[in-house]
Write a protein that binds this DNA or RNA. Sequence first.
RNA 1: UGCGGCCUAGCUCAGUUGGCUAGAGCACGCCCUUGAUAAGGGCGGGGUCGUGGGUUCGAGUCCCACGGCCGCAACCA
Length: 1100
Amino acid sequence: MTKTSQFSEVKPTVSYPEMEEKILQIWRERDVFQRSMSERQGGPEFVFYEGPPTANGRPGIHHVLARAFKDIFPRYKTMQGYYVQRRGGWDTHGLPVEIEVEKKLGLTGKQQIEAYGIARFNALCRESTMEYISEWEELTERMAFWVDLKTAYVTFENEYIESLWWILKQFWEKDLLFQGYKIVPYCPRCGTPLSSHELSLGYKEGAIDPSVYVKFRIKRGEGRSFVQSGRSPEEVEYLLAWTTTPWTLPGNVALAVGADVEYVRVRDVSGDVLTMAADLAERVLRPGFEVLERMKGSDLVGIHYEPLYRFYPVEQDYCYVVAGDFVSTEDGTGIVHIAPAFGADDMEVGKKYGLPVILTVDAAGKFRSEVTPWAGVFVKDADPAIQEELASRGLLYKAGTYEHTYPFCWRCDSPLLYMARETWYIRTSAYRDRLVATNQQINWYPEHIKNGRFGNWLENNVDWALGRERYWATPIPIWKSDAPGSAYMECIGSIAELEEKVGRKLEDLDLHRPYVDELTWPAPDGGTMRRIKEVCDVWFDSGSMPVAQWHYPFENHEVWERQKQADYICEAIDQTRGWFYTLHAVSTLLFDRPAFKNVLSPGHILAEDGSKMSKSKGNVVNPWEVFNTHGADATRWYMYTASPPGNSRRFSVNLVGETVRRFLNTLWNTYSFFVTYANLSDWRLEIGDSGANAQSPISNLQSLNLLDRWVLSELNRLVRDVTFAYESYDVIGATRPIADFVESLSNWYVRLSRRRFWDGDPAALQTLYDVLVTVAHLLAPATPFVAEEMYQNLVMRRARGERREAGGEEEPISNLQSPNLSFSQSPDSIHLARWPQVNFDLIDEQLSADMAMVQRVTSLGHAARQNANLKVRQPLAQVVVRTRNAEEEAALRRLQQFVLDELNVKAMSFTHAGSDLVDVTVFPYPKQLGQKYGKGYPKIRQAMSTLDQADLAARFQAGETVEIVAEGETYAVAPEDVEVRVTPRAGFSVAQEAGYLVAVTTELDQALIQEGYARELVRRIQQLRKDAGLEISDRIVTYIADSELMHEVLAHFGGYVREETLSVELVQLHPEQGDKTPDNLPQVSFDLDGRMVTVAIGKK
RNA sequence: UGCGGCCUAGCUCAGUUGGCUAGAGCACGCCCUUGAUAAGGGCGGGGUCGUGGGUUCGAGUCCCACGGCCGCAACCA
């Protein structure tokens, strides 16, 4: 067999962005993404829903975060053999789109849009929705978020909208759609309600409003307590209420009290009898009032009072006291004026008690004509006049001003009014219990969202305000008769139904405004059926995507059956009340089941300094900058490992760079190291027999080498733990342990095994090969590029060669990474490969624990050396170790060679109590003794400390159970209940930690010193070889100038030096006799213990 | 103001069912065993675990209260 390189050369340094571009090319060429779906068809299905982004804004780093978390589980599941259909989607409707277009056109407000023309306006909206789509596509590909954008659902398409109509029709038939009032922040100047998002832009502190205390006159004979108090029936009594919006008083229909709040009935200095909250009386009332009676708020409920105004006829019962849980005694009087048209709390109370909604204000924020004294006056301007009017009737107790935070219009700076607007609702509150119940079937990550933020939200569910008086959105498919006074309505659930109504085919109909608005038909009551003006809240679009993305139920019934519930969704935490809620609500109302089984919700991205990222601060990180600097893998890895998924995470280019240095480079160097030595060696990948007897070489290898066994044990533990974490949607658990493993692979396994690789030891090469291939598989979902790169070189290159040589016979690789998988059937991408299986037989927990101890002891040994200022190059005679127990000592004896090599010492010994080298103390374990004797533990500890420690230790070490007497009680303390701690006395340099003690001898004899010199010499020669650019296998002649010092060293260690440095000859030169190193050779001079030594090497 | 989350070394974070001397990375300081890696490796200093109570033999961990930061909902009479 001709010797060719098994693997492509891998340089120790790499440009990740360049490597990733190369991998992207491979994926494109081989159509890997599509095949990752198509090749799994027929397998068990894992359902992922893509929460659709809007493409009319640029993708930012927060999208990269969410998409990294979205991507990882479908990749994992695909490798587990699942078919994961990963359909993309675009959210295309709604106010953000409209606002962008408005800006472009320079329009402000709805009147201007309508003047411009809804058809033209919506056409521009449609164009605008995909404005940045190419940027989204590029970002999606570059970060390796595998989602199928070619087949993405688009919410503005007729098929999508038709499904939405179907859903609404279902709701309609269940009587879940209704019209009601909604309190919205309303800009009277712009004539439009503001969304909560817009609202948040305009809060101002320090707004000054009136503060007025109004007397509401109690009706005669009302209220139990009033009768009891025995007043004269002629006497006038009042309830004292407070408001900062006098203009809402004409809309008053009730007064609210806190049921458990204490109220007082007082005689004011003016002689009036007033009722208000007890706690506030001092603050509000003029001094000198007399308390007549105390009562609870609940005692007041039901008392009627005289309406302040009677501008509108009211038929139902109103103007009485109600209970409201929002009533506080922070401000005001503890009695809250209720005007359902002008406040959310008010509206809710109004609904509860069936109170009228008196809308006194028109769309421009002016009093309507019925409000005769102030008709046509802007409400805020009417405040003073209203106060005067009340004062003139003696109903104003007092007035002042009040400073608070208040919202203003972000566009025109007008103070906003909270006003009732009639709109359409989905009666979600009727399903509140089901919403809560179905939520219990969902696994939330992090878990606290389930019954925290999300659960609370569901428990306080209010009806979903569906209607929007806008343009670019799904039209609500309700048509209403325009006959005067008619309330006849029909809900249309499909295009076919609509065609039937209008009596013609509706080909090419765009299911948007204004076209659907133009469709009318005769109403049974003589009028014409016209569509209502409202369109849908955009959140209804995305919340309905499980149904609508398949144009269900109009087609795709089979797909729907498979895809009707997501196994996994993932969006940032702000979607709790967004997409998560709307998905859940639509699914529960329609099907009484959750739309998704598992949901992961990452926290937000913060800037490097922990502040919020915002355009205004200019601290927004551009994803492309990170990708171009460090690559997508590093970015993804940082997202996964930086903090638990639910937490917010700081982000910057630098922080990602740290990931590269710490993790990716370590992995890459190990990979590079392997390839270098695998190619140098005669080792050929063991691929075992073909056919039925095929066994993994690794399982047959039974390498006797402890390090091989150890690293394979660690590897299989890793496979086990990472797999478990993936199954638990535990991203940190699926990623951080890999970094830990790679660290110990590189800095323990490889470092200690270097010589075996140099020697081309097949067991070592085979072991490291299996480890790297397996790690690549484990990393594939998280860092798809570097995993692919390793796979292409380690598996695919080999597989191609193997196919050529073996003519396509099936030959297995290793059951560690893929059972029954042969090279010739190796998929041509790691992302089409199968997830590694754990080989439990290779897990040796004892060995793992023992090796951890070896590492700890070694680390302590280094510390001990450091304490004595003994560099590692200097061999030492002895290391003395104390372990925590006999088992550990035995284990350490078995593994002592690692410690000796690492610490460069000649021998290891163990110390115990009783030795004259050490002081002894006996430490009673709290865990064991605490469990046995509870509060006796401190007494035992105290008593034991007074005994002779050496004697006590000796008895325990002899296996004796010692009876300790403390405060009259006797406690049996067994050897396993205590730790015997020893401290060396002299002659050693010592380090200790957690019950371990490591001491090194500090005395050096001549042989040790000379060996140290030899090592120094070797190191210098090796460095010289390296600097001179020699090949590893090149032979040299070595010239050493300084005979006096080196003479004896070389006499003893010359063979060692020749061997280590591949010197065929060591030439000793004598500078004092005029010898000189050859000028033309690479050479170096250095100080060795005060002597100058010069070394030169010549290639042989 | 309500709800939720968080508060552990200078910074970023681990810390499992309460149990032995609370760990890592970065930063800092000192150092550098032989061809994988200086974009590396080793060692070290640095913490009254936000504060105060409580439960317990024992609390970073459980309970209560308070404070701070972040988010969400509000900011309303």
